[in-house]
Write a protein that binds this DNA or RNA. Structure first.
Length: 469
RNA sequence: GACAAGGUGGCUGAAUGGUGAAAGCAACAGUCUGCAAAACUGUUUUUUAUGAGUUCGAAUCUCAUCCUUGUCUCCA
């Protein structure tokens, strides 16, 4: 019997704004798509938080015994700098600025992305497709949308007809907006003559002569619009309708809203059963953002080389810090918060080491393991409430320390259980790792420390306190 | 301006109608130690932004006021 059959998982669905019991389309299988990064610069900690939330979700679904196909894309083309006609692709722009081939940019920052995620102990997704690798699929989607009457071609570009779509469907179901509001609040931009309405978005853009990244299409040489890749790749790998779609809160509109519209227009169905949105990581009370420079890079946390930090922290401390907040809450980053998390993290890790060395004692178990286990699972089943889980883990930490001091007792089979579940929650699901020291050259220090400790012990044995200090 | 989320102890951050409002950090005391640190144990702190209402009962629901943040244009 699989674990998911005895656990009732509830997920907060941003489409309905309520918690719903999770029921996958195909029993025992979960299809999950998460919008990955646009690889035109280094990932910052805010990006990492979102992916980390879904990494934990991926881990828990697997723990429950589901066979999960987790797709997280790499956006390597199609992201316009602005929506005006002279809009330039982000990758291409960065390539121009750094005087590199666009694919050099993509390679450079994809490597950085993978390196950082590996540092944070992420589990790689099942499939990590790139937008440039799925141009044909994207063109097919555009054709389908045109055939169904929701797309129109102007001067080599293809746009999605939002107003026409809205006649029979609802544009704005996810972001809880209606088209009328959007019309009233649209920013007026120059040079939008090609579009029928400002709300329409590009499915395919004509490549100007200077544009480097270009592909042939039925409408001439061009490149795909941003929202298209996710529709194409999620459809290809997960089907027209799948279980979970995740991403950052800031992608809700227009990106995810447009994905729904594209999928409806092309495939005749809403693409996703459970929409999940992770909240923002703030710095100084403001959202972290690449464009405003209010951000911190993971590398700066490891090294401590940031004006926001007093020292460096190992990746697991940052991971623990994020897991102490719920994924749907805004979390504020600060040096003080990280210092506090480091203490808590070390306490937890010390307890894990103690636990491994623990021997059974007494003739009964002086801790209600069943209730504790139940509480831990209840926390995770309640929309992945990791802060509650961590609070429960510290209950166990207290018990473990009492066992160490001989102030509590445990039977052999209970000890086996406790070890099994502590390892599952701490390492398997939260993804924490035993890491010590805040610098990478910790190994070379160890030798010196041992020498010092030996000297100190000798001195202490001789009551030579001046030397030992 | 429109729409959305939120304001909980010194800090971070849970709990959405039911007894004393998690947990971590900080503070204080104790254990340990030659002293200290670390570690462990215990204690303390919030009348839950403000005002009113609904209820036997509200942080939680309703209304008003003040404030913060996000989205509406590229963002995780």
């Amino acid at each position: 019997m699989k674990l998911y059959q005895e656990q009732e998982l509830k997920i907060y669905n941003s489409l309905t704004n309520q918690k719903e019991v999770f029921k996958p389309i195909n029993e025992g299988h979960v299809g999950m798509y998460v919008c990955g990064p646009t690889v035109y610069s280094n990932v910052h900690l805010g990006n990492v938080r979102t992916f980390m939330s879904f990494d934990m979700i991926f881990r828990y679904l697997k723990h429950l015994g589901y066979k999960v196909r987790y797709v997280r894309n790499i956006t390597d083309v199609g992201h316009l700098v602005d929506d005006a006609e002279e809009g330039e692709d982000k990758i291409a722009k960065k390539a121009r600025l750094e005087q590199l081939e666009p694919m050099e940019i993509v390679q450079k920052y994809t490597l950085d992305f993978h390196y950082i995620l590996q540092k944070f102990n992420f589990i790689p997704p099942s499939i990590e497709p790139t937008a440039t690798g799925h141009i044909i699929e994207q063109i097919e989607i555009v054709k389908g949308i045109i055939d169904n009457g929701y797309g129109y071609e102007v001067n080599g570009s293809v746009y999605f007809d939002v107003h026409k779509f809205n006649e029979k469907n609802e544009y704005g179901v996810l972001s809880k907006r209606n088209l009328e509001d959007l019309v009233n609040n649209s920013r007026e931009l120059d040079g939008q003559s090609d579009k029928k309405n400002p709300q329409d978005f590009a499915l395919w853009k004509k490549a100007e002569e200077t544009h480097i990244m270009r592909w042939p299409s039925p409408w001439g040489e061009g490149f795909p619009g941003w929202h298209l890749e996710c529709t194409a790749m999620s459809t290809k790998y997960l089907g027209k309708r799948f279980d979970i779609h995740g991403g950052g809160m800031d992608l809700k509109f227009p990106h995810h809203e447009s994905e729904i519209a594209q999928n409806e227009a092309c495939c005749g169905t809403s693409p996703v059963n459970y929409w999940m949105h992770a909240n923002m990581l703030t710095l100084n009370g403001k959202k972290m953002s690449k464009s405003t420079d209010n951000n911190i890079l993971p590398g700066e946390i490891f090294s401590g080389s940031s004006k926001h930090l007093s020292k460096g922290f190992v990746p697991s401390v940052a991971r623990f810090f994020m897991m102490q907040a719920h994924y749907r809450s805004i979390l504020d980053f600060s040096n003080d918060a990280l210092l506090a998390s480091e203490k808590g993290f070390n306490k937890l890790m010390e307890a894990m080491k103690t636990l491994d060395k623990l021997e059974p004692s007494g003739d009964k178990t002086s801790f209600n393991l069943e209730v504790w286990k139940r509480n831990c699972y209840n926390a995770l089943n309640d929309d992945f409430n990791t802060p509650i889980l961590i609070a429960d883990l510290f209950e166990a930490v207290k018990y473990i320390n009492q066992l160490k001091d001989g102030k509590a007792t445990i039977l052999p089979e209970s000890l086996t259980e406790l070890k099994k579940y502590m390892h599952a929650f701490v390492f398997e699901i939260l993804g924490l790792e035993q890491q010590s020291g805040s610098s990478d050259d910790g190994d070379s220090l160890t030798g010196v420390m041992e020498l010092l400790i030996n000297l100190r012990n000798e001195a202490r044995a001789n009551k030579d306190f001046a030397t030992s200090d």
